[in-house]
Amino acid sequence: MTSTQHLAGGATASPARPVYRGSGRAAETRRKWYEIIGLTTPAIAVYVMFVLVPMGFAVYYSLYRWRGVGPPTQFVGFDNYVLAFQDPIFIDALRNNAIIVVGSLLVQGPIALGVALLLNRRFRGRTVFRLLVFVPYVLAEVTVGIMWKLILTDGGTVDALLKSLGLGSLTQAWLADLDVVIWTLLFVLTWKYVGFAIILLLAGLSNVPAELTEAAAIDGAGWWQVQRHITLPLLGPTIRIWMFLSIIGSLQVFDVIWVTSVPAVRSLGASGTMATYMVDNGFFARLWGYGNAVAVILFVISFVAALLFQRFLLRRDIEGAITRRVG
């Protein structure tokens, strides 16, 4: 960063800058701009075309009642948005997303912190344990969903294990009971994504200077005191970045829910999220205008959550990346 940062103001800053061969100042500038345009255009084009343009179209389509055939003609204003907020199944989806957002933070955070501190200690075989803990994170969401669906099926492995432990009374219709399914899904999501939190926290821990913890230990601080007063405060930025990514991910969650939870349960609102609701109604039921309205709602909620989080918590951590003002 530092070597170019101070040059940002103007092109003439470096006195030792050699002149390119066979070119005057004007030719050099023109050539520089050709290179800038040539190197950035492909990335800008793909990014604009497939990230920004579709979101613009979503807003446009969301104002129509449209079955996806021919251009949209039946303008309905904000009716689709009103309809969404009047649909109890969509409200259920919002509630499920809220459970997943809050639940992921409250459950994954402490577990990840504990495991990261544990695996940050020096002991033989640490590398292998780290590798094993990350396994769920690299598996495809679909694989994880199907795996747990089979394990949690009625009279399946989990039920059998509970019975063999004499806890038969705890067996549930894990994925079919409308009051239980969202908590089962929260468990599966935790199993899948806690490894990601652990990777991030271990990365953050590796940036904590050993001198600090060693000095504290020499001064007589116990392991727990060192973690509490030195390591944890220094982990603050990493924890906040993880929270940010976790919240955004939880708001958009689709794959695991879609695969693990059967459509019948989803359609009753017990397990669906905004994203599954959007795909069910927009893509499969061909209510394109309505589906796009849900897409815009999902986008606005994620966007506002991201901005609020950055405004209040993240500002210092990724200064210069997202929050920097133009200029």
Binding site: F50, V51, L52, V53, P54, M55, F57, A58, Y61, G68, I248, L251, Q252, F254, A275, M278, V279, G282, F283, W288, G291, N292, A295, V296, L298, F299, S302, F303, A306, L307, I322
Partner: peptide, 14 residues
């Protein structure tokens, strides 16, 4: 900040 999930329907249409 643009969730890929939210853009999926218009992306498909495009």
């Amino acid at each position: 900040l643009f969730p890929a999930g939210a853009a999926i329907l218009p992306l498909y249409l495009m």
